[in-house]
């Protein structure tokens, strides 16, 4: 049982990291998007493992469902594919890898110093239920919740305004 959990964790983790790497390194943007969806599924699995059932479902719906569809839609709208893709010069790529690697090293070094409380012996599965989250969200976090709705509304209006054709004479796209 224990080993199974660990195995599951390792599989999900390696899947997430592999998909993440493929997202970055895929030559075709469409492939990148598809690998990102895979990565999201792996993360959803992690959520389940961490007894955040509701969040896992929302994650799938929002990210894999809504956001990634938006990405793919945009990619197809712009008709981007492998041939049109431009790549950075080799030096910039090496610089990017070194920078990211340094950040990784430093982050790991920081986390190694983290002093943590001892892990709880038992897991409370109720914290991830809709009931608990709903109560917390609508009691303690009511004001931020309402703000989030205003934010989404604003974003929607903003997106419509930004993306609509302003002058048919000058825009051929």
């Amino acid at each position: 049982m224990h080993n199974f959990t660990l195995l599951l964790f390792l599989i999900l983790s390696s899947l997430a990291i592999f998909c993440g790497l493929m997202t970055v390194f895929s030559r075709n943007p469409i492939h990148s998007a598809l690998f990102l969806i895979g990565c999201f599924f792996a993360i959803a699995g992690h959520y389940l493992l961490l007894s955040a059932q509701f969040l896992a479902i929302v994650h799938i719906i929002v990210y894999a469902g809504a956001i990634m569809v938006l990405f793919l839609f945009t990619l197809m709208l712009m008709n981007l594919n492998e041939e049109t893709e431009q790549h950075k010069p080799a030096l910039a790529k090496i610089g990017a890898v070194i920078s990211a690697g340094m950040l990784m090293l430093v982050l790991v070094a920081v986390f190694k110093r983290a002093v943590l409380a001892p892990p709880p012996p038992y897991q409370d599965f109720s914290i991830g239920t809709i009931e608990t989250l709903g109560k917390v969200l609508l009691n303690e976090f009511l004001l931020p919740f309402e703000f989030a709705s205003v934010l989404l509304l604003t974003a929607m209006i903003g997106a419509v305004l930004l993306a609509k054709k302003q002058n048919p004479n000058t825009n051929q796209a």
Binding site: G95, L103, A109, R113
Partner: peptide, 23 residues
Amino acid sequence: IGYYMMFMVLSLVAVFVYALLIR
């Protein structure tokens, strides 16, 4: 923009290194 983002990441690294050294 690429350069700016690179510098941003490097600065972030610098901040973390500084925090590490201080601690």
